[in-house]
Design a protein around this nucleic acid. Structure first.
Length: 556
RNA sequence: UGGGGCGUCGCCAAGUGGUUAAGGCAACGGGUUUUGAUCCCGUCAUUCGGAGGUUCGACUCCUCCCGCCCCAGCCA
């Protein structure tokens, strides 16, 4: 959104009115990931929303790990998430909070609920609980253990905590309403027995609180004022409220739901992303093809581009699918403005300058950016032997100027930042393929208009042979071949784009690219934006962040 | 069909009884250009899921209908 101010969404409106009406004096939000995977672009939207709102209204936003299920979680994910949030630019040296810090308090509150006769230890197994729960149209039935005496519940719950009960044998359930139309209210499980050690609390606990029991109370403890989550939690809200109003908590957080981000041609389901990783479709969570924050980082996409994109998104209750093109727009916008230009030839064709002596120079000064003089210029060698893209040359003189704005035999073209030249002679090998082209430069055409009577067809990129450096490039493309791989439930893997990564070797890059720092992004003129991979490596490899917008192929 | 939520241009989305129905992306024209990039200009919903109704007046209120999403984990 350039010149228009963005409309204020319903959550921000609520915050504004709560502030104005004194409902809250300071807004406190939170971003509560479970450390069971890496953060993706959908999380980025939530991060921008939560931290953004807190910033805008002078409040605060907590990064809090919802680590209530040790079986799925790992310290490695905690570390990755912290790194990603900081990288996105919201907090320096962030000090995260953890649900596990509140396990003692949560346990005490559970005892409180039992004492109030509002929770009970149930001995139904998982399958029986499901049967008793009823279905979407049929009400549930009360558990036979529902009316247990408080004292018995207390002692049983203690036994659960002490590890005296096997996994799966008992649960602590809230006593609410087995006939509720909202299935979440049919005596939800508050605690289950899991005898696995937790990445932070070790073996202290063998019972762990469920999301529904834990989340609202975590919010209350942290005095969260606006607990923002995605739409699928809407039917959990009455339960969220039930715990808050039945427990002696010292705050009354409120939950608000917005539509999560979906992008076409990719997926934003942690479970499915994990599957891509586990089954080696990609090379890890930070594979540049992944819509993860870390993947995008390796792809050379800046935090600002991601933030700009997220801020362009609507916060509403509709669940739509945003065009990947919208994301790409913000990526290109940022990269175009900030990336110095350089040249790299992927599929080299040798050019020999027959009148090299007429050049009368061997170094050329080239601007690093057409619209930003502050990015300076560089010296590039201009030698007798050059490389251009094979696809930038044609021996077909009948090609129209409009259709082929490149080099054609017996015609002129401009080398970017350099001379205008003419292709004079084609050299072929025994098989008849073109191996070299002899060209003649037009003297004094650097930085000057074409002389009378000479009309170069266009401008092409090039590289000097002697000063060039060999490199490889990774060309990334969309992860899936169909717009909505997610909608096909189980078979999203069938739509995996096997050409989402194309590796090209034997490329010739300008010498200065040898010194490119990992993560540094360049625009390879006429090719796209490329960044040197973050991974330590002796070889010179560039990852394509994104191609240049191309309105030409589509018109042919 | 128990409960909850949503349907405005190809995509996202403003709009809360009186506006010519914002804006962004995409697309399509045209201009500038030593990147077929960027940039600039222009075009792009007589219509708001459908049908009725209330009203001088409805995308906005009412009724009915249609469609889509979420909930039946001891996941979050």
């Amino acid at each position: 959104m350039k010149n228009s101010s963005k409309p204020i969404n319903f959550i921000e409106n609520k915050i504004k009115s709560d502030l104005e009406n004194g409902v809250v004096e300071r807004v406190i939000t939170r971003f509560p990931p479970e450390p069971n995977g890496f953060l993706h672009i959908g999380h980025a939207k939530s991060i921008c929303l939560n931290f953004g709102l807190a910033d805008k209204y002078g409040g605060d936003c907590n990064l809090r790990f919802d680590d209530t299920n040790p079986e799925a979680e790992d310290q490695r994910f905690v570390d990755a998430i912290i790194k990603d949030v900081e990288w996105l630019g919201f907090k320096q040296n962030i000090r995260p909070k953890y649900a596990s810090d509140y396990f003692d308090q949560l346990y005490e509150w559970a005892i409180f609920l039992i004492s109030e006769g509002k929770a009970y230890v149930c001995e139904l197994n998982a399958e029986q609980i499901r049967e008793y729960r009823g279905t979407l149209k049929l009400p549930g039935r009360n558990s036979p253990y529902r009316e247990r005496l408080v004292e018995e519940n207390l002692s049983l719950f203690e036994k659960m905590k002490n590890g005296e009960i096997p996994e799966g044998a008992m649960t602590l359930r809230a006593k609410i309403d087995m006939t509720s139309g909202n299935i979440n209210l049919r005596d939800p499980v508050m605690y289950r027995i899991k005898k696995s050690s937790h990445q932070r609390t070790g073996d202290k606990w063998c019972i762990y609180p469920s999301y529904d029991y834990a989340h609202g109370q975590e919010d209350a403890i942290e005095k969260i004022t606006h607990s923002i989550c995605t739409l699928e939690f809407a039917s959990n809200r009455p339960l969220y409220d039930w715990f808050i109003s039945n427990l002696p908590v010292h705050a009354e957080p409120k939950q608000y739901e917005f539509g999560r981000l979906n992008l076409n041609y990719t997926i934003t389901s942690k479970r499915k992303l994990k599957q891509l990783v586990d089954e080696n479709y990609v090379h890890g969570w930070d594979d540049p093809r992944m819509p993860t924050i870390s993947g995008m980082r390796r792809r050379g996409i800046s935090p600002a581009a991601i933030r700009n994109f997220c801020n362009s998104l609507a916060v509403a209750k509709t669940d739509g699918i945003v065009d990947m093109a919208q994301f790409e727009y913000f990526v290109r916008d940022d990269l175009n403005n900030n990336s110095p230009r350089a040249m790299c030839v992927f599929d080299p064709l040798r050019l020999t300058v027959v009148n090299y002596d007429d050049a009368k120079l061997d170094q050329i000064k080239i601007q690093n950016h057409p619209n930003r003089p502050d990015l300076g210029s560089r010296e590039t060698r201009f030698g007798k032997t050059l490389f251009i893209e094979k696809s930038d040359f044609s021996d077909d003189e009948t090609l129209s100027r409009k259709k082929f704005k490149r080099l054609v035999i017996n015609d002129y073209v401009r080398l970017r930042g350099s001379f205008i030249l003419k292709a004079e002679k084609i050299i072929k090998d025994e098989q008849g393929s073109i191996t070299e082209v002899l060209v003649r430069i037009i003297p004094n055409t650097i930085g000057a208009d074409a002389p009378e009577g000479i009309r170069p067809r266009g401008v092409i990129h090039w590289v000097d042979q002697d000063s060039s450096v060999d490199c490889s490039v990774n060309l990334y493309d969309r992860l899936f071949n169909v717009p909505s791989p997610d909608s096909d439930q189980d078979n999203f893997l069938q739509h995996f784009n096997t050409e989402s990564l194309i590796f090209i070797t034997g490329c010739k890059a300008e010498g200065l690219l040898q010194k490119a720092a990992p993560g540094e992004v360049f625009q390879f003129e006429r090719q796209g934006y490329f960044t040197r991979d973050l991974a330590e490596s002796d070889s010179l490899t560039f990852n394509r962040s994104i191609s240049l917008r191309d309105s030409w192929e589509s018109k042919l």
